[in-house]
Every structure is written in structure tokens, then in C-alpha cells.
Amino acid sequence: MVEIRNLRKTFGPTVAVDDVSFDVAKGEVLGFLGPNGAGKTTTMRVLTCYIPADSGTARVAGFDTYAESIEVRRRIGYLPESAPLYLDMGVMEYLSFVASIRGLPKSMRERRIADMVELCNLGSVRHKTVGELSKGFRQRVGLAQTLIHDPDVLILDEPTTGLDPNQIVQIRELIRRIGREKTVLLSTHILQEVEATCSRVQIIDNGRLVAQGTTEELTRFAVGERRVVVRYRAAAGDVEPRLRELGGVSGINALDSEEPGTCRYEVIADETDGLEERLFRLAVESGWVLTELRPETRSLEQVFQSLTRGEVV
């Protein structure tokens, strides 16, 4: 649905987006993750035909964002960062303006606006002007605006910034619901957001893509090995050599056991399968009591940090 190839955009000496290529498949919710200033907004602005790229191509539903810009714009709904709206306009009046400028036939407008009010829960504010609304409601008006012409692709730039926790939950729920039918590209610098709403993640830093995959894939990718924390009720002197001999184990780190008479290790293996099982069998064979066996998962947060700090993973 969205194809970006070798996209590059500079602002004077600053390279905002550098050779970025990725796809968003139909029906997918792709999280576009990166620290502030990484190039997310610039990529989205190229994709929405607001600015052209220096080189490379971006296509939406097969149409080129530069050469066939009007066709592309018809097929996308865009929510720029911080949901800019005309503050003097009434909510319904604004939606009606967007419906008409989006070229919806008159006969459909009222119907679509009513649907959007329903979908985005705007019923209680329909008689207010946009300037009177809270940030959460403005964001929902912004989302209603992106959906009114039933676009194929939604592009949402940081849709939850500046919202309180309850509003964030509501907006995410709304995005998840929308994502069942639409192709969504969503940028954020908040990791929970990606885990909560996206099926796939694309990490960008300093204008370059540094990683991509599902959230689980990324976590595993960044770790690249399996780590398990294990605790046996046995003497450390007995346990340590046996662990080192265990198949597939590439290293162990002694940890503070926090309990007298036990010893605790972090076991690192190259192979990802069956490590817990072998650790359990070791306990049975040696007659040790196993008091802890826990896979060490690195959160997406740590993955993100290590990727965007330029550490080799």
C-alpha cells in the first residue's frame, strides 16, 4: 500500500532522511519509532505530498507522491503532529468543511459526518467550537477528519502526544479499531504505544532506518542470544563447572543469590531453544532443588536505546 524507496531529504546542511526504504502492507499498522528529530515527520510530510524529497520515491496505492500528488492525497488521511485545527470553527462545521474539500458528494456528507461523530465519540461536543475543546477531544476531531473520506491509508504523526493517560488509552483503542480495516503508519517516540497498537515496528534514528520487525522479532534481534536466570539450592562450586559444560552455553555470570544456601547465575546461550529444559534436567540429574528459572527478556525500551545510541547489536 505504501512503498518508500531510497528516500532522501536534506534541509540545508542537515540530512533529515537518509536513504530510507520500507513498505507498509495493506491492513498493517506500522509503528514508526524514533527519538525526536529522527526524521519521522519529514518522511510523513513527503508521503503526504506536503514537501517533495530530494531523491528517491514514495508511492501510495501505486501512485507517486510527486508526479501524481492529487491521487495520493485523495487516498490518505493525515493527522499532523499536535492535530492543528481551525479554532474558530464549530466541530460539525469543521468536519463538513473537510468533507467538502475532500470532494465527498453532498448526499453522503451528512451520513459520513454522523458516522465519524459516532466512531470518534464526538457526540457530546458537537455544538462546541474547536477552540473550546480539550486536547483529547481535539485529537479525536483530528482523527475524525483523517477518516471522513474513507481513505486507504492513514498517516498519524504522534497521535497521543500531550494527552493524559486516560485519553491515551482511548486514542490507542480507537487506532486499534481503525487499524483492523485500514493501513496505518503511526509515528511515535513512546514504546508502549508501539507495543499497544502496532503489528510491526520500524525504528529510525538520525534519518536512517536502524531496525524493523515485529515487536518480538526486534527484541530477539537486539538480544541475539538467549539469557536465562537460574537459581539452585546447591554449592556454587558444584554448580558452576556443570553449567559451563552444558550444551550450547556460551557464558555464565554469577549473580547475587539473595538467599542463603543457594547460588544464582545468568546463563547465556547461542541457541535459543531448549535452554530452560536443559537447566531443569541438570537439576534433576544432580539432585539440586531448582528455586528460580526465568528467561531474561530485554524490553523494547532497551532495544531502542541500544539501537539509537549507535551501539552494535
Partner: peptide, 14 residues
């Protein structure tokens, strides 16, 4: 000022 320019110019409007 409002930032609505970005939205206006990404509507299918020349």
C-alpha cells in the same frame, strides 16, 4: 501559526 497549513496543503487541493 496554527499549523493548519500542513493539513490544508495535503488535502487534494492545488
Amino acid at each position: 501559526k496554527l499549523g493548519t497549513m500542513e493539513l490544508l496543503m495535503t488535502f487534494p487541493v492545488r
